[in-house]
Design a protein around this nucleic acid. Sequence first.
DNA 1: GCTTTATATTAAGTAAAATTTGATTAAATC
DNA 2: GATTTAATCAAATTTTACTTAATATAAAGC
Lengths: 309, 309
Amino acid sequence: MSFRRLKTLIAVAECGSFVKAANSNFLTPAAVSQQMKTLEAEMGVALFDRKNRTPALTPVGSAMVSKAREIVRAYENMVSSVTGEAALEDDLAIGAVPTTMAGLIPRAVKSLRDAYTGLHIRIMPGPSSELYSLVDRGFLDAAVLSEPVRVYDHLRWLAIVDEPLIVLAPENSPTDDPKELLESYPFIRFNSRAWVGQLIDQWLNSQRLKINEGMELDTLESISAMVYHGLGVSIVPMRCVPSPRPLALKRIPIDPPASPRRLGILSRHDNAKHKLINIVFHELCCVVELSGQLPALASPDPGFVPEGV
Amino acid sequence: MSFRRLKTLIAVAECGSFVKAANSNFLTPAAVSQQMKTLEAEMGVALFDRKNRTPALTPVGSAMVSKAREIVRAYENMVSSVTGEAALEDDLAIGAVPTTMAGLIPRAVKSLRDAYTGLHIRIMPGPSSELYSLVDRGFLDAAVLSEPVRVYDHLRWLAIVDEPLIVLAPENSPTDDPKELLESYPFIRFNSRAWVGQLIDQWLNSQRLKINEGMELDTLESISAMVYHGLGVSIVPMRCVPSPRPLALKRIPIDPPASPRRLGILSRHDNAKHKLINIVFHELCCVVELSGQLPALASPDPGFVPEGV
DNA sequence: GCTTTATATTAAGTAAAATTTGATTAAATC
DNA sequence: GATTTAATCAAATTTTACTTAATATAAAGC
């Protein structure tokens, strides 16, 4: 088992004889001969037909040569495929929670597409819990989601931004006091299966407000629309990047402030595309900063160098 | 440049420490340490973070580990991949509907794992509608699901088996007549979001039976358990491969017979792993036939050659 | 047909590499 | 603070790989 042998096999195939291969690789013919012999022994197949003076590759042999080429190339590109330019041309399967699908994600994907031709991003929307398991099992390279309660060692979490919870109320509501609003209007609940929903429930419970249960919805869009039409008020995370044409609504910080919904990117440590993922992470942070709504969290990332792109 | 070093890198990643990796590879810790050092020098990147006593893999390092795995596997399968015994080693992401997760899928996966070392199958359970879109968008290589109403040109559908609908009733129920059972017991409905559920609803509507709505459940397991405990009757597809220890229940064919739930495998025509998918399809059909419950549909498959396994 | 020439193989010696041994350093545990 | 455990270092040793030189063999030239 050795790369050298594979390399000389390739050289022999290219040069046409052991002697020439030896010369081009700064070896003696004897060395080449021995290497090919051990290679054949190792593999248990005849690579050369030795009837003639200059051994000719058998059919199996020439198939091996192309395999050997693949392997040697894979080895030689090993470093660059992880850290270099080559790492920037690949397919990337990324998940994202619905709240990011109108603002953050489209903007980030757009600039990434523009900056890296050859990079192909597929987006899969879903709730945090599902995305977590998809990343964990390797179906997704990374996902943008709410911070998990526990991040296991084989996973990598990079925080992007803290989105504080806000009260969403119709523009014409008589008061701006969050508690008053929550107690007077019907409450539109963020689906509690979503991790944000749980965060909201937690705050509500701690406040012991007398709320009027209205409906329970999945997405920020549907909740906004309901509130817009005066059907109630809601608590939602403030979007770090607003949607293109946000509805005219009151957005009031809750008081006392709840622990914010922390958005970040989750991936597996052993994912070979970690460089790409770093770039996506970096782009997400940039988009958040540019949007100017909330400060991006300067997440410590030892392995990450901005890359002069 | 050496496979040994890659192998010990993998061992270190798996064992978690140099010492353990040394033991498992019949080496001394010193050898491992030196190998990793030369590997780092060779690649010009830091694979380990040596702040702590037992060095931890850097992000780049763990990406390298997965690359190393690819390369080592490629080398090890070099001979067999050329001689054609097992030109089949790859990762395969496959979806499957829950009804197949207790019988068909585990058996098929097991024999595939046994037959093709090097083949790595990941299974993702989900309802047909979701799997359809995941295959369509390229997140899954293939999926086992109910026949879609329409299969677009870029998708490929291979039918595996027709599962007729049956009535599930407690063993001690007073009658064996499906209609009587359905009208006397509460009806446990298969979730109508699932495509089977719709098929069942269709038949029920056509029969104009006066059923007593009970509950609506997601999985065959939960429905079986409910029926077993006498909480009602249900209509479900007969499983082409039963689960290991099926509950003692009456299983009565419905009359008049409804159009059966057709199970098959969906993939994209442009998927590069179509050879592997063919093999999986073939295996699924074999498992169905072996199980002897229902005949496998001999689906015409131009591109498929049985492979001497 | 016999020599010449170029090519591969073999065996022994030599150079290079990888591994072990035993000592040293440093973090973690008691 | 002593003890255990993990990694590293430097020198000795072993293993592996390469070269040299001799041998065998097929094609080309005379």
